[in-house]
Write a protein that binds this DNA or RNA. Structure first.
Lengths: 138, 138
DNA sequence: ATATTTCCTATAGATTTGATAGGATAAACA
DNA sequence: TGTTTATCCTATCAAATCTATAGGAAATAT
């Protein structure tokens, strides 16, 4: 299951993507529109800024705005920042690879091969879906 | 990411599926073969028994054995027992549906539609893969 | 100057996860 | 019948993670 952090992050990003202009939007505006705790959202937007998805502006009229076009922001990229690995086991993760502690040889692990399938499939959706898909429909 | 519980459960089930005969296998044997804490594995096998995947026998020569053919045990079914919902958000779960606390109307939620896609795709793998696929290759 | 808004760090409560402990129960078998 | 072997069951616990919250610092607009 998605953590709230990731879900909130995606909702906030899509909120920004749906806007017509690129003017900064205050945290409080997004948090009210999307029913998200303001302080929690603040920390989420902060990490999206530090990882290059958002820009920010302080003071009156300040807030957050997208740094890229919605179609350049893949859901996979956001997911990796907020949620972590997309793979279901560390030993099949492309970006967060780790050896499983219980497997002397991962190529003999029955779970390993299945999880590669799941990963590739999930990846094909998350990589090929962008924020612009959120705007388009609905 | 998969919890250890689920990973261990899958490994234990595939261990049983790989065996030629249907004789009961003791917890200790599986836990040593798969590098799993014995007591932890015990609780996992117990819940797999209570949900109809495994049979058990007490006393000398006892242990656990599969109740169904490996090709009748889908990974999805095991996943739901040990891990819970396959869906990434409760509002798109088929078996564990719940309203998201932050969405007044889920059909207006930008995350909702994407997660249906992810769910269907993951589901198509997990439903169509069974324990017998673990035995076949590798 | 003052008000506004993000920036940043620390912390805290709740929940989940991963595991352990220890005795009860049942079966096998000598 | 008694002993050994193995699962059954409940309770508990430490560590990690998740979901926030608090409070002041820094920057910007007016």
């Amino acid at each position: 299951m998605l953590s709230r952090k990731t879900k909130y992050g995606l909702k906030a990003l899509s909120y920004l993507a749906k806007k017509d202009d690129d003017k900064p939007v205050q945290i409080s505006v997004i948090s009210e529109a999307e029913n998200i705790s303001q302080k929690f959202l603040e920390s989420i937007l902060l990490s999206l800024r530090k990882t290059g998805f958002l820009g920010s502006k302080k003071g009156k009229g300040g807030g957050y705005y997208l740094l890229k076009n919605p179609d350049e922001i893949s859901i996979a990229a956001v997911y990796r920042i907020l949620e972590g690995p997309i793979a279901m086991v560390p030993c099949v993760s492309l970006n967060f690879y780790e050896k499983c502690h219980d497997c002397p040889d991962e190529h003999q692990c029955s779970v390993h091969k299945l999880m590669i399938q799941v990963r590739d499939n999930t990846l094909s959706i998350l990589e090929n879906t962008s924020l612009s898909d959120f705007v388009a429909e609905n």
